[in-house]
Design a binder for these strands. Structure first.
Lengths: 232, 232, 232, 232
DNA sequence: TATGAATGAGCCTTCATTCAT
DNA sequence: CATGAATGAAGGCTCATTCAT
């Protein structure tokens, strides 16, 4: 859609004008994205209701009117934020899982740390906090999130556990509950990071990576057939 | 404070008038509670910003003006809701812990289930979800919550773990992380119940009691010195 | 209406009860006055709109409901304040004028100082400030004030000037303007005292008595037939 | 600030567009002024508290929201009214005083009449009345008024009197009191015009110009070294 | 397309007034 | 008579949304 900048200019066309058009066009196409980024940051920081569209527009470097050119309402902006931000990276993740060659305990640990690096510690974590906070007001969004994120994530974790059981590494587990036992610390870390952490005294601060390590170890204690022999 | 109802009425005193006064007095004393109850329900359902004080008043069966007779602002009403809902039940809990005679695995399981019965499945859970959702907007509330709930809960769980280690039931644990491993499923259950659960397909629904059971079992696997011998 | 306290008690009547009734009755009769006093003070200090009836009631030591037992509305309370506070002291003043034996310059000076002592420096001055401030909102009150205070005061001053002219002490004066030349400093002192004075630096503070003296001297310079010979 | 209308338009520039922009710009620039004018009229007529911002906006031909686009609060609107209305014209006045060539009696008379024409009979007088009425509620405004108006006016009058004394026209005067003797009739006229006058019977009406004339004559009687020789 | 001035519905809050007790 | 809890009609102010330019 954007004109390929490597393409040679049509002969006779004034270069400057073309370049300007290009830049404007590129800018125009970037607009929604910039607005979504700005909105994401502000929604995460202050919540949906407390974020003013003026602020979003200002942060995106456009006027308030322009925002409504791209999003018909604040609610639609919010929905767009959720939709745009949730990039389905589960395909890639599933592939990694398939290719993984270590034991299942290592895989599980890898998955959890991987989640932290790719989601938990990035801005993407804000979106989950946001969705959970506003789910009551936006059931549609919550359902969308469930379908696009929770569901696939759930499936992926189920695959990991199944792999462990199939390979005789994990004891027979009640799949659903075990999956949620893995989701729980992630949700917890998200909410903690975005809500209580700023108010906790240093003594109760949490190093997420260490916590994940510790948590996985504890859970593996209950999952592994032979905990004593575990390598991780 | 209220006249002792066991006290016989002064002879000659008209019983009707006394009763009326009592009802009036009771009414006045009941108002804040009724308002807090109404506010709790609405805040949990719609969030702080989306809840209108008119609605709260209407639900409590009074006029808008009356609400401001008891709470100087919407924000103070919110704080009152938080305070009232999470009235420290930790004293009682700590006593139970002290008196508990079973082994530490049983105690841990008891604690988690107890939490669900007293907090998780009651309206109090909604307020925690709300506090975490709105923490950014109400740092004061978040700090209060941290001090009144998170802190004491943290301490209580630490005592449980310490008991297990002292009695040689639990392996040496990194205390902080282990505590958060117990807190995590509770926070998760809270958030889940109040945000995603209504949108999940039946296949992904979660029975909280069973989940707690399962989660505790897994964690105990990692905590107990002798997992095989565990009674629960 | 109030039982004469000197009247011997009716035989057989319990003294205590009677006394209580008396006190309550006396108190009841005093209520309107106490309310008017409280209202005067607050109206003068804060203006009509900014004075809350709660405050008036509280200052008078009664409940808000009681206030409305005596005055049907805040406006009526205001009117009552003006009516009650403006005690016609012009009869007495006119008598003094008639009996005055000094020369007219002395009489004029006496009148002005007398006004300051009896009105200007007392709480009564507040009422004039109040009436002038709120005249736009209460034309009825302004008319009443004009009739009860301005008019009589005007007449009294006219008599003084006429006396001076009749006795050949004052030059022929344009009566209306001359009267207002005497009223002007009084109005000025009132407004000054109640509005700007608190904001003026010490260098611009004003000693009212000295100012009246100075002002009268200047005016007499223009009024007296023989200024050089004036004794005051 | 506005583009010089005498400047010829750049050749080729579309006149219509320019004019439109100008009109739009002028409109935006005119808004605060229109609002201040509307507010001035209503504040003077009804007082600060009784004036509703809706009314001000309506009178200025805009919506309530627009008003808050230009003034952050009703109070700031009021302050703006005061500032705009009494924009310091003392510089001009001081110059006139310096250039004045007549005798000091004439100068004094000129000053007083000048005040009436520029302040007393204009809308600015209403604002002074308002400031004095509401001074108790707005000490900040009162202080501002004192600094911007009372102070400079005071200084100007002092200069006039000093000039008279320096030139041997005026007798030695107690400066402060004499200055206030000149301020008093102005304050009086203001208050009178805006409060009692509408309620006075015709017999007690006051022609301000004549009153000033009369008042100045009387005061000059007390000020001049040689009253008999006075030309005015 | 982009702007930003304008809008107006709606919110929180106040306070004079009422009325059951 | 006195109380004070309850009321509800406004009022000031915000902010998502519109639209002329």
């Amino acid at each position: 859609m954007t004109p390929d900048p490597l393409q040679p200019l049509a002969p006779g066309e004034p270069a400057a004008a073309t370049e300007q058009k290009q830049r404007r066009a590129r800018r125009k196409e970037a607009r929604p994205g910039e607005l979504v980024d700005a909105a994401l940051a502000l929604f995460v920081e202050k919540g949906f209701a407390a974020t003013r569209v003026d602020e979003v527009a200002a942060r995106a470097g456009v006027s308030k009117g322009t925002l409504f050119l791209y999003f018909p309402s604040k609610e639609e902006l919010f929905k767009a934020v959720v939709r745009e931000t949730i990039a389905g990276r589960f395909g890639e993740w599933n592939d990694e899982l398939t290719r993984f060659e270590g034991n299942s305990a290592e895989l599980l640990r890898y998955c959890m740390h991987s989640w932290w690096e790719r989601i938990g510690m990035t801005a993407a974590s804000g979106i989950t906090k946001l969705v959970m906070s506003e789910a009551g007001m936006f059931p549609e969004i919550a359902a969308f999130y469930q379908q696009e994120v929770i569901g696939p994530g759930h499936d992926l974790l189920r695959r990991v556990l199944q792999r462990g059981m199939d390979r005789g590494e994990f004891r027979p587990l009640h799949m659903e509950y075990a999956v949620y036992s893995l989701i729980a610390p992630m949700i917890f870390l998200l909410m903690w990071k975005h809500s209580m952490a700023p108010c906790c005294p240093p003594s109760q601060q949490l190093d997420p990576v260490e916590f994940i390590d510790s948590q996985v170890s504890l859970l593996l204690g209950g999952m592994l057939v032979n905990p004593a022999a575990r390598s991780t």
